[in-house]
Protein backbone atom coordinates (compact mmCIF):
# COMPACT_ATOMS: atom_id res chain seq x y z
CA UNK A 1 0.00 0.00 0.00
CA UNK A 2 2.78 2.38 1.05
CA UNK A 3 4.76 1.41 -2.06
CA UNK A 4 1.74 2.12 -4.22
CA UNK A 5 1.41 5.58 -2.70
CA UNK A 6 5.05 6.28 -3.42
CA UNK A 7 4.64 5.21 -7.02
CA UNK A 8 1.53 7.35 -7.41
CA UNK A 9 3.38 10.31 -5.92
CA UNK A 10 6.34 9.83 -8.22
CA UNK A 11 4.02 9.59 -11.22
CA UNK A 12 2.23 12.79 -10.19
CA UNK A 13 5.54 14.60 -9.73
CA UNK A 14 6.70 13.56 -13.19
CA UNK A 15 3.39 14.67 -14.65
CA UNK A 16 3.68 18.07 -13.01
CA UNK A 17 7.31 18.42 -14.07
CA UNK A 18 6.35 17.65 -17.66
CA UNK A 19 3.66 20.28 -17.44
CA UNK A 20 6.22 22.81 -16.27
CA UNK A 21 8.34 22.38 -19.40
CA UNK A 22 7.90 25.61 -21.29
CA UNK A 23 7.02 25.52 -24.94
CA UNK A 24 7.89 28.48 -27.07
CA UNK A 25 4.52 30.11 -27.64
CA UNK A 26 3.21 30.47 -31.17
CA UNK A 27 2.89 34.16 -31.91
CA UNK A 28 -0.42 35.43 -33.25
CA UNK A 29 -0.54 39.04 -34.33
CA UNK A 30 -3.48 41.12 -33.22
CA UNK A 31 -3.80 42.60 -36.69
CA UNK A 32 -3.18 40.81 -40.00
CA UNK A 33 0.12 41.67 -41.57
CA UNK A 34 1.38 40.97 -45.09
CA UNK A 35 4.45 38.86 -45.66
CA UNK A 36 6.25 38.30 -48.96
CA UNK A 37 7.33 34.72 -49.46
CA UNK A 38 9.75 33.44 -52.06
CA UNK A 39 10.22 29.72 -52.64
CA UNK A 40 13.28 28.40 -54.46
CA UNK A 41 13.92 24.72 -55.14
CA UNK A 42 17.52 24.18 -56.21
CA UNK A 43 18.69 21.20 -58.20
CA UNK A 44 20.92 18.90 -56.18
CA UNK A 45 23.39 18.65 -59.03
CA UNK A 46 21.80 20.84 -61.70
CA UNK A 47 22.14 24.59 -61.82
CA UNK A 48 18.48 25.41 -62.43
CA UNK A 49 15.80 26.35 -59.93
CA UNK A 50 12.11 25.62 -59.82
CA UNK A 51 9.08 26.28 -57.68
CA UNK A 52 7.97 24.13 -54.74
CA UNK A 53 5.26 21.48 -54.65
CA UNK A 54 1.79 22.77 -53.85
CA UNK A 55 1.72 20.71 -50.65
CA UNK A 56 4.71 22.59 -49.30
CA UNK A 57 3.28 25.98 -50.19
CA UNK A 58 -0.02 25.05 -48.57
CA UNK A 59 1.70 23.90 -45.39
CA UNK A 60 3.82 27.04 -45.10
CA UNK A 61 0.86 29.29 -45.83
CA UNK A 62 -1.15 27.52 -43.15
CA UNK A 63 1.66 28.09 -40.65
CA UNK A 64 1.73 31.77 -41.59
CA UNK A 65 -2.05 32.14 -41.40
CA UNK A 66 -2.04 30.73 -37.88
CA UNK A 67 0.14 33.70 -36.96
CA UNK A 68 -2.24 36.11 -38.68
CA UNK A 69 0.25 36.71 -41.46
CA UNK A 70 -1.09 37.22 -44.97
CA UNK A 71 1.32 35.51 -47.38
CA UNK A 72 1.97 36.96 -50.80
CA UNK A 73 4.08 34.73 -52.98
CA UNK A 74 6.76 36.48 -54.98
CA UNK A 75 6.88 34.77 -58.38
CA UNK A 76 10.10 32.91 -58.99
CA UNK A 77 9.98 32.87 -62.76
CA UNK A 78 11.50 36.33 -63.40
CA UNK A 79 14.31 35.48 -61.00
CA UNK A 80 15.06 31.99 -62.25
CA UNK A 81 17.99 32.79 -64.48
CA UNK A 82 19.88 34.72 -61.85
CA UNK A 83 18.99 32.43 -58.97
CA UNK A 84 20.02 29.40 -60.99
CA UNK A 85 23.57 30.71 -61.22
CA UNK A 86 23.99 32.15 -57.74
CA UNK A 87 23.02 30.28 -54.62
CA UNK A 88 23.75 32.75 -51.89
CA UNK A 89 20.91 33.12 -49.47
CA UNK A 90 21.90 36.66 -48.49
CA UNK A 91 21.75 37.92 -52.04
CA UNK A 92 18.53 36.08 -52.74
CA UNK A 93 17.02 37.62 -49.61
CA UNK A 94 18.15 41.05 -50.75
CA UNK A 95 16.44 40.42 -54.08
CA UNK A 96 13.29 39.34 -52.24
CA UNK A 97 13.38 42.60 -50.28
CA UNK A 98 13.56 44.50 -53.56
CA UNK A 99 10.53 42.63 -54.89
CA UNK A 100 8.46 43.04 -51.72
CA UNK A 101 6.19 45.91 -50.80
CA UNK A 102 7.35 48.54 -48.36
CA UNK A 103 7.27 47.44 -44.76
CA UNK A 104 6.34 43.83 -45.56
CA UNK A 105 7.82 40.97 -43.64
CA UNK A 106 9.97 38.67 -45.73
CA UNK A 107 10.40 34.91 -45.86
CA UNK A 108 12.80 33.11 -48.17
CA UNK A 109 12.40 29.33 -48.39
CA UNK A 110 15.23 27.56 -50.21
CA UNK A 111 15.03 23.80 -50.68
CA UNK A 112 16.77 20.92 -52.32
CA UNK A 113 16.65 17.12 -52.16
CA UNK A 114 19.24 14.54 -53.08
CA UNK A 115 18.80 10.79 -53.45
CA UNK A 116 20.71 8.79 -50.84
CA UNK A 117 20.00 5.10 -51.56
CA UNK A 118 17.49 2.26 -51.46
CA UNK A 119 17.16 1.21 -47.86
CA UNK A 120 15.06 -1.82 -46.90
CA UNK A 121 12.70 -1.32 -49.80
CA UNK A 122 12.25 2.41 -49.39
CA UNK A 123 13.87 5.32 -51.22
CA UNK A 124 15.86 7.46 -48.84
CA UNK A 125 16.45 11.07 -49.79
CA UNK A 126 18.26 13.80 -47.97
CA UNK A 127 16.24 16.99 -47.93
CA UNK A 128 17.64 20.38 -47.06
CA UNK A 129 15.88 23.65 -46.32
CA UNK A 130 17.34 27.06 -45.65
CA UNK A 131 14.90 29.54 -44.17
CA UNK A 132 15.56 33.26 -43.95
CA UNK A 133 13.06 35.68 -42.46
CA UNK A 134 13.08 39.26 -41.31
CA UNK A 135 11.88 42.76 -41.53
CA UNK A 136 13.10 45.08 -44.26
CA UNK A 137 16.23 46.88 -43.24
CA UNK A 138 16.89 44.64 -40.26
CA UNK A 139 19.31 41.77 -39.87
CA UNK A 140 17.38 38.63 -40.97
CA UNK A 141 17.07 35.49 -38.88
CA UNK A 142 17.94 32.18 -40.48
CA UNK A 143 17.47 28.49 -39.89
CA UNK A 144 18.71 25.42 -41.74
CA UNK A 145 17.43 21.86 -41.80
CA UNK A 146 19.07 18.75 -43.14
CA UNK A 147 16.92 15.69 -42.69
CA UNK A 148 16.00 12.32 -44.25
CA UNK A 149 12.81 11.77 -46.19
CA UNK A 150 11.60 8.34 -47.26
CA UNK A 151 9.30 7.76 -50.20
CA UNK A 152 7.86 4.51 -51.50
CA UNK A 153 8.37 4.70 -55.23
CA UNK A 154 11.03 5.48 -57.79
CA UNK A 155 8.82 7.99 -59.58
CA UNK A 156 8.59 10.08 -56.41
CA UNK A 157 11.45 12.42 -57.18
CA UNK A 158 12.56 15.73 -55.61
CA UNK A 159 9.15 17.44 -55.80
CA UNK A 160 7.40 14.49 -54.15
CA UNK A 161 10.14 14.32 -51.54
CA UNK A 162 9.68 17.99 -50.67
CA UNK A 163 5.91 17.50 -50.53
CA UNK A 164 6.52 14.77 -47.95
CA UNK A 165 8.82 17.14 -46.08
CA UNK A 166 6.23 19.94 -46.07
CA UNK A 167 5.06 19.64 -42.44
CA UNK A 168 8.62 19.75 -41.13
CA UNK A 169 9.58 22.75 -43.23
CA UNK A 170 6.35 24.59 -42.37
CA UNK A 171 6.83 24.02 -38.64
CA UNK A 172 10.36 25.38 -38.76
CA UNK A 173 9.32 28.35 -40.89
CA UNK A 174 6.64 29.16 -38.35
CA UNK A 175 9.10 28.89 -35.49
CA UNK A 176 11.52 31.18 -37.28
CA UNK A 177 8.81 33.77 -37.77
CA UNK A 178 7.85 33.50 -34.11
CA UNK A 179 11.43 34.51 -33.40
CA UNK A 180 11.22 37.44 -35.81
CA UNK A 181 7.85 38.59 -34.58
CA UNK A 182 8.89 38.33 -30.95
CA UNK A 183 11.82 40.65 -31.54
CA UNK A 184 11.32 44.36 -31.10
CA UNK A 185 9.45 45.85 -34.12
Amino acid sequence: MRRGLWLAGAWAAMWLAAGCIQRVPEVRLAEPRPISVLYVVDGAREAGVQGPPVELKAAVEAALSRRNLQPREVPLQPLEAGFGRVRESGKRFAELARQAGAGELLLLVELDAEFFSHLQGRYRWQARARLTAGRPGAEPAADALDFPVYVNFDHEQAQAVLATAAPTVADRAGALLDQVLSAAP
Binding site: P78, A81, G82, R85, R87, E88
Partner: peptide, 16 residues
Protein backbone atom coordinates in the same frame (compact mmCIF):
# COMPACT_ATOMS: atom_id res chain seq x y z
CA UNK B 1 15.11 38.70 -65.28
CA UNK B 2 18.01 40.27 -67.13
CA UNK B 3 18.35 42.94 -64.47
CA UNK B 4 18.48 40.36 -61.73
CA UNK B 5 20.98 38.30 -63.67
CA UNK B 6 23.26 41.27 -64.16
CA UNK B 7 22.92 42.34 -60.55
CA UNK B 8 23.78 38.90 -59.27
CA UNK B 9 26.47 38.27 -61.84
CA UNK B 10 28.27 41.31 -60.59
CA UNK B 11 28.48 39.73 -57.17
CA UNK B 12 30.96 36.99 -56.35
CA UNK B 13 29.00 33.84 -57.10
CA UNK B 14 29.54 30.96 -54.77
CA UNK B 15 27.78 27.80 -53.89
CA UNK B 16 25.46 27.72 -50.91
Amino acid sequence: SLAVLLALAALPARAD
